[in-house]
Simulated assay, not measured.
Amino acid sequence: MPQEPSPAAFFIDLMSHSPENIICSWSGGKDSCFALMQAVRQGHRPVALLNILNENGRISRSHGLPPVILQQQAAALGLPIHLQPSTWADYEQHFTATLAGLREQYQATAAVFGDIDLQPHRDWEEKVCAAAGLRAMLPLWQLERKMLVYRMLEQGIICRIVSCNEQLGEDFLGRLLDDVLIADLEAAGVDVCGENGEFHTVVTDCPLFSTPVNLPAFRKVKHEQYWFLDWQEA
């Protein structure tokens, strides 16, 4: 395992701020979960989760998670979740408006995101937060990707791959994130954090959950250049 950085490096984005009521941009995957864990560890108070669904409200954008899984996660966290259907064309408008509504409803002052080092993502998050009257909080920002994945495992995140690109293929779907998978991702020439969109995960347990999430039955389907778990009983 790589040498660990100072634990203080995990909280650079938070240390200069007093505890705040925060909204979490919740994908259901490892990065948003770990970002929330770090924010809570620093004393911030999560008040709501926000997830953007596709236009028919059947699954979440990017990760392809049905509402029943997202709602299980929210219940395990003891938090309300707002599920907002949207087309890609209206994504920013709906995201900003929903953030503003949640800010007012829960007296929030910041929103937490799980992005790591893609500057255009951070720029967009800071833009929509500013428009909604919130501060963007990115506790994982500029951390080394591989070390970050190991820290997630060490701190108790349990997750599986729910979507991946053609380079990985359908055999990676459903696999548990562990040392073996990390090695296989590296062997396949894929970033082990999936920050470039190579794969997405679903968290089934973590220290913030009161109970593990039960995943419905699924099959594997391909949509354009991406493989997804299709949830049959959701």
Rank of each mutant, 00 (worst) to 15 (best):
E198M: 08
E4M: 15
P5F: 15
Q225E: 09
G114L: 11
Q3R: 15
G194N: 03
V180Q: 13
V112N: 04
P66G: 04
G43P: 00
N21Q: 11
A132I: 05
F228D: 00
P212E: 01
Q72F: 11
F228Q: 01
K222I: 01
E4V: 09
P212G: 09
N54M: 10
Q105D: 01
L134R: 07
D178T: 13
P19K: 06
S25R: 15
C159E: 02
L215N: 05
H223I: 06
A89P: 00
A110T: 10
Q155W: 05
R58D: 02
V40F: 08
C33T: 15
E55L: 03
E104D: 10
A89G: 02
G114H: 08
F172V: 13
E144W: 06
D117V: 03
K127N: 11
P2Q: 14
S32G: 11
I22H: 04
R103C: 07
M137V: 13
H200V: 10
E166L: 12
W26G: 09
Y150C: 10
L53K: 07
S6L: 12
W231S: 14
M15W: 08
I12Q: 12
Q155G: 05
Q142N: 14
H121A: 04
P5G: 15
I59Q: 09
A110G: 14
G194W: 02
V128P: 07
V203H: 01
A89M: 03
D191L: 12
V68M: 13
F11W: 03
L168Q: 11
R103V: 12
S32P: 07
A97P: 00
T201M: 07
E224S: 13
P216A: 06
G114V: 02
G169T: 03
H94K: 15
I182V: 15
E198I: 09
R103M: 05
D184S: 14
I161H: 05
P85M: 04
Y226A: 03
P139R: 10
L140F: 11
F172K: 09
E125S: 14
I12A: 13
T109E: 04
L140Q: 08
I23E: 00
H17G: 01
L177S: 07
L181N: 06
I157N: 06
H44A: 11
I23Y: 02
W124Y: 12
E55A: 15
E170V: 02
L77G: 11
T211Q: 14
M152E: 10
R145L: 13
S60A: 13
V68S: 15
E125K: 15
D13T: 02
